[in-house]
Design a protein around this nucleic acid. Structure first.
Length: 590
RNA sequence: GCGCCCGUAGCUCAGUUGGAUAGAGCACGAGCCUUCUAAGCUUGGGGUCACAGGUUCGAUUCCUGUCGGGCGCACCA
């Protein structure tokens, strides 16, 4: 018999069940057809607090199917819901909303629930254990991470954590593009550094190669290992070797950079290995058998036509059949795979071990979303397909650009010259917590400014600081209470009044917010929730400025102090849980 | 020219998968404040949700079109 059996479910979770039970009762009484789809029934706090603690639209969305009008159905539901001991009042409002007022005891109980569930408060089973593959970062292995990769990395990592918390199994995956032209350029760049390490006069790094100093040690290591064996050898003798070595070194560097942000992938999938295993050929053969790949002429580019454009026949995937604007080549004229051709096989491979796929991409890749979605639909959806006709849900989340600013002035970046701002520089300057939280303070599809000065500002304008400060304030109050001999005391929390319970009401949103954010794949909602909760906490705190009797520690009243400290500890717990979801550590003092 | 994203208060942005009188911070106006943790507090004004249609009990939210901004548009990745 575990202790957990005694724990009441979080109030919003519980009431989702209560409303369902009430509807079941109406079904049993013959008022509502059993087969009615309840998916659009919501249980949420009303926007206007004067309307009560909870509102449901159940009567409005089900009335038509029940062959009655919303207010009549609401009357029946209210009669059921009023039977619940937690319900202090239920009324029908407007077109058929049902507003519920809960007893104060319900909120007191919620404090105990938070304490009992602790780090698990907010966890959900909504994911049902299904496996979601989240692919994020996937930066080319040609150099250190730079800030262009940062937002997608944080959003992807926070999303992965959120989905796990919501009851999914998550595979965090990084697709390593180690087969294309870029890594050949890398190999050539490294070869120059190799010759340089051998004492050759290599001059300036030629245009088009990677000029960064980070390749110097790679060249030196190769010089130590191979001596001058490849110094003047033809490219065909060293290209593959140097590419393999360089990519391996770059991945070490990238993993180190990601570790600075606390990011660790479960799986690094190599494009080169995928190709070596013949996966793209398998995909092509199957697609040709379905007449989804054919040899055809590529359409001319839609923008300004390049001077050297000439029509050519290539194997094309019929992505237009699945909503794309034109069919896309899977092979180049030299017979090698296009990025898309390999990516198509790669996504099919991912679908083998996951129930759903999510890709986090930079907005500059928006143009290729349709073709890859088309490919996944074609390969997983076909009735006779390799996946048995079960189309794998697949979403691409586009993360917009981040503009780096310093005191309002744009920071110049040029990838070509190798003069870009690295992730490491930024993390070392402002800290992991600040980077992660800030990247989640805007919805991903909107552009974002990242100002070095503003993100470290210690003021309430800075949401990172504001949330951290709330947690630190709680910790320091608990320390202070301990000094005065007051401990958090759950025995006396019935003494808490309406102002304190309003704080609980706010914190109690967390479990349903986790579910909504997970379903929407939007981790930034957690960041905004934390900001709102911190604001409510600070506001309550400030009441104590003028009214010592409303402070957490009331020196001559041990019972009230114990109750408020217990409340504070649980608010702190919810903040910690939320921050943990974002991968941000909660600080105990500032 | 086409595709994707964005357009909400003077500014920066939320807006709970279509809900009730659209919110927060900054800035502005007016008061207060020397603190259980200083990085302040309270309060007020401020809106054609870019625009025009459509869908329905109901639209900031969904659909169509227009305007404005960003990104992208080869067999690159």
């Amino acid at each position: 018999m575990s202790q957990n059996a005694q724990i009441t479910a979080p109030v919003f979770t519980a009431f989702a069940g209560h409303v369902a039970t009430a509807l079941d009762a109406l079904v049993a009484a013959g008022h509502v057809p059993a087969e009615l789809n309840r998916a659009s029934v919501t249980i949420e706090p009303p926007r206007d607090p004067s309307h009560g603690d909870l509102a449901t639209n159940a009567a409005m969305v089900l009335a038509k199917g029940a062959g009655t009008n919303p207010r009549a159905l609401a009357g029946l539901l209210v009669a059921e819901l009023e039977k619940l001991p937690q319900v202090a009042g239920a009324e029908i409002a407007g077109p058929g909303f049902i507003n519920l007022r809960l007893t104060p005891g319900t909120w007191v109980e919620e404090i105990r629930t938070i304490a009992a569930l602790a780090g698990d408060y907010g966890k959900s089973a909504i994911g049902g254990g299904t496996v979601v593959n989240v692919e994020y970062v996937s930066a080319n292995p040609t150099g250190p991470m730079h800030m262009g990769h940062c937002r997608g990395a944080v959003v992807g990592d926070a999303l992965a954590q959120l989905l796990e918390y919501a009851g999914h199994k998550v595979i965090r995956e990084y697709y390593v593009n180690d087969a294309g032209a870029q890594v050949q350029v890398l190999a050539r760049s490294v070869h120059i550094r190799y010759r340089e390490a051998l004492g050759h006069d290599v001059g300036a790094i030629p245009e088009g190669l990677y000029p960064g100093d980070y390749l110097v040690p790679v060249g030196e290591a190769l010089a130590r290992e191979f001596g001058d064996r490849y110094a003047t050898a033809p490219e065909s003798e060293w290209l593959a070797l140097f590419r393999t070595r360089a990519v391996a070194d770059m991945l070490v560097m990238i993993r180190d950079d990601l570790a600075l942000l606390g990011i660790k992938h479960d799986l690094f999938s190599s494009e080169a290995e995928l190709q070596a295993a013949g996966k793209p050929e398998e995909a092509e053969a199957w697609l040709r058998a379905q007449d989804l790949v054919y040899d055809g002429e590529l359409e001319a580019p839609k923008g300004k036509l390049p001077d050297d454009w000439e029509p050519v026949e290539l194997p094309l995937f019929r992505s237009t059949k699945f909503g794309d604007d034109q069919d896309r080549p899977i092979k180049k004229s030299d017979g090698s795979w296009t990025y898309f051709g390999a990516d198509l096989a790669y996504h099919y491979q991912k679908a083998q071990s996951a129930d759903a796929l999510v890709d986090i991409w930079g907005a500059d890749h928006a143009g290729t979303v349709k073709r890859i979605k088309a490919a996944v639909a074609a390969m997983t959806g076909a009735a006779k397909g390799p996946n048995g006709g079960k189309e794998t849900p697949f979403e691409v989340k586009l993360v917009q650009m981040v503009q780096l600013l310093r005191d309002g002035e744009p920071v110049k970046m040029s990838k070509r010259s190798g003069n870009f701002v690295t992730l490491r520089e930024v993390v070392e300057e402002v800290g992991k917590e600040v980077v992660r939280f800030t990247m989640l303070t805007r919805k991903p599809e909107a552009m974002m400014d990242f100002d070095f000065a503003k993100v470290v500002e210690a003021s309430k304008d800075n949401p990172v600081f504001y949330v951290q400060y709330a947690h630190a304030r709680i910790c320091s109050t608990l320390r202070k209470g301990a000094e005065e001999g007051f401990a958090p005391n759950p025995q006396s929390i019935d003494l808490l009044g309406a102002e304190e319970l309003a704080l609980v009401r706010q914190a109690a949103q967390f479990p349903r917010l986790v579910e909504a954010a997970a379903v929407a794949r939007e981790p930034h909602r957690i960041a905004f929730f934390l900001h709102d909760l911190a604001a409510a906490f600070h506001a309550y705190w400030n009441v104590g400025n003028d009214r010592p009797d409303k402070r957490f520690i009331v020196s001559d009243n041990e019972a009230v102090s114990g109750a408020r400290l217990f409340l504070g500890a649980q608010i702190g717990q919810v903040i910690r849980n939320g921050l943990a979801l974002l991968g941000v550590a909660a600080v105990e003092e500032m």
